[in-house]
């Protein structure tokens, strides 16, 4: 097994990683998507090696945009791998009789042999959770697409008037809340026929595409 150079700056996940699904799976997971429920950050567990009783996984944070582009075959596995947030990689060696208690350590350098092949693209036939992952990513993407119909300064003005929008973790647009002093979330009268537009006192939220906003169990 490859010798690793470590940073000894260990992230603490505190069991906060929830598995969304596998982007690649045959005879078990190869590339698996997780979300840190504390902050919504996404991580990939990427199987890179095995020795005796351990399987070695690289773990890296990734943007939903990059995963979507990988799924759409706009970028390769290698490009996805390199697009990690802050160029930070962790690893863990997982032993099967202790699946829920593995230690994650930051790498100083990723060994060359752990980089994926250059020309590999996503293959839907290897992705048993395709629908679930795509739905999850699109919902996640929509969270980041709230576009103001006014300038930044006017948004700031609204904020100073205690009209700060508080977003619930549920990712459900219909559950978006404003604080107790703010007007209720209402549909803008001029855009009422368009169910992709909502208005909160001057800030229009445009839902970019048709997603399933069904509440997660």
């Amino acid at each position: 097994m490859e010798q690793l150079t470590l940073k000894y700056k260990n992230p603490v996940f505190n069991n906060s990683l929830v598995r969304i699904g596998d982007l690649i799976n045959y005879d078990g997971p190869i590339l698996s998507l997780f979300e840190d429920v504390r902050n919504g950050y996404l991580y990939l567990f990427d199987w890179v090696d095995r020795i005796e009783q351990y399987n070695r996984w690289l773990i890296f944070q990734i943007r939903s945009k990059d995963i979507l582009e990988f799924i759409q075959k706009k970028i390769t596995y290698l490009e996805l791998f390199k697009n990690t947030v802050k160029n930070t990689y962790y690893f863990t060696d997982i032993i099967n009789n202790n699946l829920n208690n593995y230690r994650v350590i930051q790498l100083e350098i990723v060994p060359e042999k752990y980089y994926p092949n250059a020309n590999d693209y996503f293959d839907k036939t290897d992705c048993p959770s395709y629908d679930k992952i795509v739905s999850f990513l699109l919902n996640k993407k929509s969270e980041n697409l709230y576009l103001p119909n006014t300038s930044i300064s006017s948004i700031n003005n609204h904020r100073t008037q205690s009209q700060t929008v508080i977003r619930k973790k549920s990712r459900n647009l219909n559950e978006m809340q404003v604080n107790s002093n703010s007007p209720r979330l209402t549909r803008h009268p001029l855009t009422a026929p368009n169910k992709n537009r909502y208005d909160i006192t001057g800030i229009t939220i445009i839902r970019r595409s048709e997603f399933n906003y069904k509440k997660h169990a």
Binding site: R19, D27, G28, S32, W47, R50, E52, Q53, N55, I94
Partner: peptide, 17 residues
């Protein structure tokens, strides 16, 4: 079968695999 093989270890991330 895969689930019976212990050496080499099966590739698992949790029991759902």
């Amino acid at each position: 079968p895969l689930n019976i093989i212990t050496n080499p270890p099966q590739r698992l991330l949790n029991d759902s695999d």
